[in-house]
Design a binder for these strands. Sequence first.
RNA 1: UGGGGUGUAGCUCAACCGGCAGAGCGCCUGGCUGUUAACCAGGAGGUUGAAGGUUCGAGCCCUUCCGCCCCAGCCA
Length: 433
Amino acid sequence: MSDPVEIQVVDLPGHEGEEVRLRGWVETVRLHGRVAFVVLRDGSGIVQCVVQKAAVGEELWEEVSQLSQESSVAIRGAVEREPRSPGGFEVKVAEMKVLGRADEFPIQPKEHGVEFLMDHRHLWLRSTLQRAVLRVRHEVTHAIHEFFYAEGFTRIDTPILTGSIGESAGTLFSTDYFGETAYLAQTGQLYLEAACPAFGKVYCFGPTFRAEKSKTRRHLTEFWMVEPEVAFADSEENMRLQERFVSHLVRWAIERCAPELETLERDTSSLERVSAPFPRISYSDAVELLRQKGSEIEWGSDLGGADETLIAEEFELPVFVFNYPREAKAFYMKENPADPRTVLCNDLIAPEGYGEIIGGSQREDDPERLLRRIREEDLPEEAYEWYLDLRRYGTFVHSGFGLGIERTVAWITGRPHVRELIPFPRLMNRLAP
RNA sequence: UGGGGUGUAGCUCAACCGGCAGAGCGCCUGGCUGUUAACCAGGAGGUUGAAGGUUCGAGCCCUUCCGCCCCAGCCA
């Protein structure tokens, strides 16, 4: 196999009538006695390859009839336009070489249970739906960097191993760090606040870890979060950034992932409507609305998943719920001057029951109030000295938010469970593969 | 952690009231020159999650344990 050019499936249309070489994996083989159809996947697409016994001879025919699903092969053949073939093109095989014969492949093109698929996650990644959702994830993460680059943000990589700092120590993974305890980061925000006076607009993007014992379709113990932080932005500006950002991600995915979304049978009409501004409802109004709809919720308690879904049903777009009670939120959020029972913050709830995809807030910039809150929450004061320093050396109004990648991709792809939307999910009861 | 559900062939699932352990897919063998998760014929494949109990007899009923799924809480 030397002379013909090696191409990828995606480039087949430009090589009609030529002889080419391809390498990839066998998705299916259909044998018919003297003709065989081999569907080849090379990562860029799939193509049906036709082997005719009369054209290739006994020896190769024997090899084709022994071909197993997911074997890796190299082929040489002519590219032809063929309406009966999926994708409209076909390769007439002249030569084929098995590069790596596959044992009996556990995953068949049929229904499987979740546990079985997760046990075989390393092989499940090859299947059509998983390729589609992970491709959408890739485009969404690309759009994140593209958006912030265009907006003049500087990317700051925050540490994963941290001392005792963050929101609440009960949900942190801990590990030994040369004799002292280190925690896996559950947010990069506090470090971003430190970088904010250096660069003005910053963001981080990486894995975060929560040791919460949650077993729901919206939770992972390791998930990816993008967190921007903007100097001199108040809560209102923060929400305006969020709605522009989310609109950008959705529009990007629709434009770049049309084939994938079609594979996933995602009705994109609701996604097409997503553009700023998004509707806003205060926490207090949301509680009022929920009580009118029959909920028993009392002012002061946080909104549950069912509450969020009820609120989302009222709007066609993602909806901001802003200014929650202080007790329901983190210590670093700024007190609302107009109503000190509440803090200047917001969640963004995705439509169609996909739940909270963003949590954001204006940060407390007053050193006295911040210290009071740290003491109220019984946090180790010494560990927050450097964080308090940020208020002592040129304090400034600033705001930021965190967007969960897996939840966002769940919403865009219409998949029900976040465990499919990260290549190797980490759940309470799953650490492998 | 609480509530609900579930566990049978490699996979997805049947098995009536407690009465011989079944099918489809996959795999193996044979047939077939246009299939689209091809089709046709044949074959192999089982500690019914584990332990105990009731019964002439348990996949099925009871007890305990284990795994998984869904919902709630916590959150992105």
